[in-house]
Every structure is written in C-alpha cells, then in structure tokens.
Design a protein around this nucleic acid. Structure first.
Length: 466
RNA sequence: UCCCGGAUAGCUCAGUCGGUAGAGCAAGUGACUGUUAAUCACUGGGUCGCAGGUUCGAGUCCUGCUCCGGGAGCCA
C-alpha cells in the first residue's frame, strides 16, 4: 500500500477512494460508543491533522487503539473517503492501525493538546516541534531560507561559504568564543608566561566567527555579487528577546555599489522574500497570526508592496528632538540611537520599516566608508516595528589611506588585516553590503516575540542543552 | 552585567488577615449512536525552587542563594 503524507492526503493530491498508508504522531483520540475512535494524526508536512476512523472491529482495538494518547507514533492503512462528519473534507477509514512507538508514561508526556507557554516549551526543545506552533514556525523558517537563496540566486549572487573558524580577533562586532584544542587544565606557556598558542591546533589563536563579511569582501572583489548564509557566534552576555549566542546571518556584498544600491538591495530582498513566504505558507502564517497578532498578515502584505522610508541619521535626530516625546536617553547628534529612539522612528513616526543612513563616523565600525562631509560614514540600519534593527550594513572603505586612518582611530593593529588591506591595493572598487539577522526576520514574519522560539535549539548565556 | 517581576500537581493558574493545599486541562476507570482541543461522572496525583530566620504555627512575613521571564546595554 502506498505511503502518502498528510499534506498530500488533505490537499487532493491523493484521489478519494484510494487505498493508502499514513504515518505520523497522534495528537488526540476521541472515542464514541458507536464502536469507533477518531484519531487526529499529524506528520509535520502541514499544519492540519488527518482524521483516522478506527472501528472496534480492528483486532488490536481494545488493547492498543483505544489506549492511544498524544505523541504515539502509528501507521494506518485504509481508504481515503469523504468525511461523514464536519470539520474535514476527507478522512481515512482505517483497515489496520499499527503502533510503531508508544508513549510509555502518558501523564508526563509534555506535549498536551492545550496551550503551553513558550518558556515551558524551551525546556522541552526536543519535543516542541510536535506542537502546531513550532511545526508552523519550522515550515516558515524553511520557506524563508529557500526564498532568500532563490532571490539572491535570481539576482546573480553567488553563495560563498565563509569559514566558521577565524583568526581575526578584532572584527569589531563583539566578544568571541575561543576555539582551542589545548589542554585547558595544563596550558602551555612561553618564556614570558603567556599562553603559547603556537602549540594550538592552528598554530595561533582562533575563534568562532562573528561575521563572514571580511572574508566575503574578497570574493565580492572577484565575482561582483556574492553573499554568505551561515551560523554566526557572539559571546556577549546578552539576555534579550532578540539576541542569540549562535544565530544565522545573511550577508550580501555588492561590487561597484554605493550605499543607495545597498539599501535598494535590502529593500527588494525583504519585500521579495516576505512576498514568497506569504504565498507559500498561507495556513501556517494564518495560524501564527491567530496566536500572536491578528494584523500580522495585513502588515506583511503592506510591507511587501510599499516603499521603505529612508532618512539620514541627522534627520532622524532632528525628528526625535522635535517630536515632543520625552525619552529616557536624550537625543543628540553624535551619539548612537537608543532602542527607544529606533522604536519611535519605526513604530510611531513611520509605522513600517525605515532605513536610517549616514551615521557619525565615531560610532560606526572601522571598515565603513567616510563620506564627503568627513564626519559621517556610509552606514545604514533597517529598523522594523516590533523587532528593531533587522539589518545593519555599510558601503565599505575602499581607499587604503582612509582605511588605515580608520584602523588607527579604532586602535586596530593593521598587521592582523594585511590580506584585507591587500584588497584595497589590488584593484579596489567601491562596494557595499549588509548583514540580515535570519532569526530576527523569522520572528518579524511569524509574529513571535522572542528569537529563542524561531531557532531549533537556542544558545544563550547559560543555556546549551540539547 | 544593571533594573523590575516571577517560581504552588505532568501543564496553566488560584490560594484573602499567617491557621497544615484548590480548580481547569492532562492521566486512569466508567457512561455516551460520527466525534472535532467532544461531553458527563468518579479516581489517583503536591519536598508550595533551595537554605536559613521570625512565630505556638509560614505557600503566605524577613534574609541569602539558584533558576526563569520582561526591559536596558552590546548588536543581527
């Protein structure tokens, strides 16, 4: 008998009256003394369950079928028929139900047919994919990743798998996790008493990457349009709804491009991928919207067809200073925008994503390009309502003298960046790129309030189980 | 790391003025002629986060600790 997915069975791909096998996990069982049980079966291929109808004439009805509880793994053979009840168009009239894996202690099986808190589900991260919410989130996340690859591929971008392990110890984006095979209990020392990393696996100090940007710039200056999409690590003691110690980031890099072209790509990409997820994940998004924010889908649709507002940092400061709202932190030209300022701009002033551009040079990273005014750099942040900064990017400093000046200004040792400096010596061109936090985008699209709930196994300070 | 809040049954929570613990869901048993997180009845289920203190008596008040959540900082 042919094994079909629940999705195919429910969406008409499997003809009515055909004999099929379904496999999956029991969500609920309801008994009727008419001599039958209804079993809701889910296999993760879609949000909906398929209803199995199991008659008490099945040989294992009394001792197995009538005792099925949430979480049991089963296979069922039968004929797919139009449903006699309401609530589903088809159901499987089971001719056999085989128990593949039972739940040995139903009372303590954590996933019950009821609403659980996200905090509780994080403690059972290995079982939470069996819930409607995490099933939906998993499918949305997958479609979004596919949409990003498809969009960039369609625009002629090549995916560069930049290294996870790096020797650049000052990429300017936060604390790093050390990678070492040295015996931590008995560390080798040099004559000055310092740890002797020449004896370490790579012969030098190494870390987990905080960004693939520097590496991908080299490929940009050869293949013109490239991007990275991979895991990224920050050893910051951040305890918020939008930070993870291990997260995924998309970093496109465009040659012969300025900041405006960079913002154009960011906007086109967000619109395209959100449009594609809206189209492909209708049921899942409708379910997620019902759990979080009823206006989610309208807001996403709106975003996909409206123009992003763009403003200079200087203009943003002016708006904030004159808006009449009292902020905890004062607004002044030269200091970075606080979360409360960003939220006001995107949530109150604009009401949709906003691109803030051209920040003071002192508050932005060394590789960002100095503007003509010599007091700002060509940096941009894309701010989205509810989640805040979703994209951070810049036109890169392609002039060697300016890059060296910026490195000195930030007390960065140029000897660690000789290969990066080489890119400015050999055929340098204006180029620009940005980093998009994948979990932040999934959270924004799904309406979830915490990035810990849009990644399979969140890594945060003090938390790396599973 | 800082500020605020929280921790009571497998889960979600209530617990008044300090007087030895409750509900819903889940689980078990039974009832019910096709149900929709079915319904109804009954049953079992507790180291009240940990350690001290005050008190005749602490889930409740006090102190310390642990863990969790929200906000802030860092950033994507």
């Amino acid at each position: 008998m042919q094994w079909v997915t629940v999705k195919d069975a429910l969406t008409g791909k499997v003809p009515v009256d055909s004999e099929v096998t379904l496999k999956g996990w029991v969500r609920t069982r309801r008994d009727s003394k008419a001599g039958l049980s209804f079993i809701q079966l889910n296999d993760g291929t879609c949000l909906a369950n398929v209803q199995l109808v199991a008659q008490n004439t099945l040989p294992n009805y009394a001792d197995q079928v009538a005792h099925l509880t949430a979480g049991c793994a089963i296979e069922a053979d039968g004929v797919l028929t139009p449903s006699q009840g309401r609530g589903q168009s088809v159901e499987l009239q089971a001719s056999a139900v085989r128990v593949v894996g039972e739940v040995d202690d139903p009372e303590t099986y954590p996933i019950q047919p009821k609403a659980h808190t996200y905090e509780f589900l994080r403690e059972v991260a290995h079982l939470r994919p069996r819930t409607n919410t995490f099933g939906a989130l998993t499918r949305v996340r997958h479609e979004l990743a596919q949409a990003i690859h498809q969009f960039l591929h369609g625009q002629g971008y090549y995916w560069i798998s930049t290294p996870i392990i790096t020797a650049s110890d000052a990429e300017g984006a936060g604390q790093m996790f050390r990678v070492s095979t040295l015996d931590q209990v008995n560390l080798p020392r040099d004559d000055k008493g310092q740890i002797d990393y020449s004896q370490d696996f790579f012969g030098q100090e190494t870390f987990l990457t905080v960004s693939g940007q520097l590496n991908v710039e080299a490929y940009c200056l050869a293949l013109s349009r490239v991007y990275t999409f991979g895991p990224t690590f920050r050893a910051e003691n951040s305890n918020t709804t939008r930070h993870l110690a291990e997260f995924w980031m998309i970093e496109p890099e465009i040659a012969f491009a300025d900041l405006a072209a960079n913002a154009d790509l960011a906007e086109a990409m967000l619109k395209a991928v959100i449009g594609q997820v809206l189209e492909r994940c209708e049921d899942d998004l409708a379910f997620l919207a019902g759990r979080s924010d009823k206006e989610l889908i309208d807001r996403l649709r709106n975003l996909a067809d409206s123009e992003f507002v763009r403003m200079d940092y200087s203009e943003a400061v002016k708006i904030l200073a004159e808006c009449g709202k009292r902020f905890e932190f004062p607004v002044s030209w030269g200091s970075d925008l606080q979360t409360e300022h960003e939220r006001y701009l995107t949530e109150v002033h604009v009401g949709s994503p906003v691109v803030v551009m051209n920040y003071p040079e002192k508050i932005k990273a060394f590789y960002m390009r100095l503007n003509e005014d010599e007091r700002t750099v060509a940096a941009m942040d894309v701010l989205a309502p509810g989640i805040g900064e979703i994209i951070g990017g810049a036109q890169r400093e392609e002039r060697l003298d300016q890059l060296d000046r910026r490195m000195r200004q930030f007390h960065i040792d140029p000897t660690h960046y000789q290969w990066y400096r080489d890119l400015r010596r050999y055929g340098t061109v204006p180029h620009a790129g940005f980093g998009l936090g994948f979990e932040r985008l999934v959270a924004y699209i799904s309406g979830m309030g915490n990035v810990r709930d849009v990644i399979a196994y969140p890594r945060t300070p003090g938390n790396a189980q599973f």
